[in-house]
């Protein structure tokens, strides 16, 4: 939670560059408008949508989001710099978030983190050279009954032991959540949407029609 300052003469966005937000992403952002009294309140959903689609929120994306929400780009930067979940630079395809709070520490979370660092060959807040994994730590994930725990993208892994780490990293499905997805927010891109066999909210739609 810190301030980000940039030199005002420094050009951060090329005004002639083609837009980075697709029409589908813009439409998804606009679909949140009816929920709130102001367009600015759609900023957090918008940042989630953009980050899920592009893996991070670039400077240019911020300017374009500001355009869609009819607010100043500086408002977007002001908000985004507050939250740990939004990234302004590329991360790996899968982000591993290790809990470092008290229950996980007491239950041996530090050893799991060390094992991850060794296996991946990176430190906290770094990304593997092949772009597959980034490693970060966070405060309590509210999974303390399963301590020590960590998230791989959206999936919570429970009671992880250092000896499990190698297998966990090798598992191609280690970021899939086992519940039907709502289509309001997509899975981080590169990982496909809902898997075959797992329903989405559209089957609630079917239920409604039935």
């Amino acid at each position: 939670m810190s301030w980000k300052t940039i030199d005002r003469n420094q050009q951060v966005v090329d005004p002639k560059a083609p837009p980075v937000l697709t029409e589908a992403v813009r439409e998804k952002i606009r679909s949140f408008f009816p929920r709130y009294e102001t367009k600015r309140a759609v900023l957090l959903p918008a940042l989630h949508i953009v980050q899920d689609a592009s893996g991070h929120v670039s400077w240019q994306a911020m300017v374009e989001i500001a355009g869609v929400l009819e607010i100043a780009p500086s408002d977007v930067i002001d908000t985004i710099s507050f939250y740990t979940h939004f990234w302004t630079e590329h991360k790996g395809k899968r982000v591993i978030t290790v809990c470092r709070s008290i229950s996980c520490e007491v239950m041996g979370g530090a050893a799991v983190l060390e094992e991850l660092k060794t296996r991946l060959g990176i430190e906290e807040h770094q990304t593997t050279p092949d772009g597959k994994y980034s490693l970060v730590t966070e405060e309590c994930l509210a999974g303390c009954d399963h301590a020590p725990c960590l998230l791989i993208n959206e999936k919570l892994h429970k009671r992880v032991k250092p000896a499990d780490v190698a297998k966990l990293l090798a598992d191609p499905e280690n970021d899939r959540i086992p519940v039907p997805r709502s289509d309001l927010f997509d899975a981080p891109k590169d990982h496909g949407a809902a898997e075959a066999g797992v329903g989405t909210t559209s089957d609630v739609q079917e239920m409604r029609e039935a």
């Binding site: 998230l151 999936k155 919570l156 609630v204």
Partner: peptide, 21 residues
């Protein structure tokens, strides 16, 4: 809802969709 609740978001959202329906 905190963003780290991914599964819980989809569970609750589905329940809300059901309640609307």
């Amino acid at each position: 809802m905190r963003v780290e609740f991914h599964e819980q978001f989809h569970i609750l959202q589905r329940a809300i969709d059901e309640a609307y329906a």
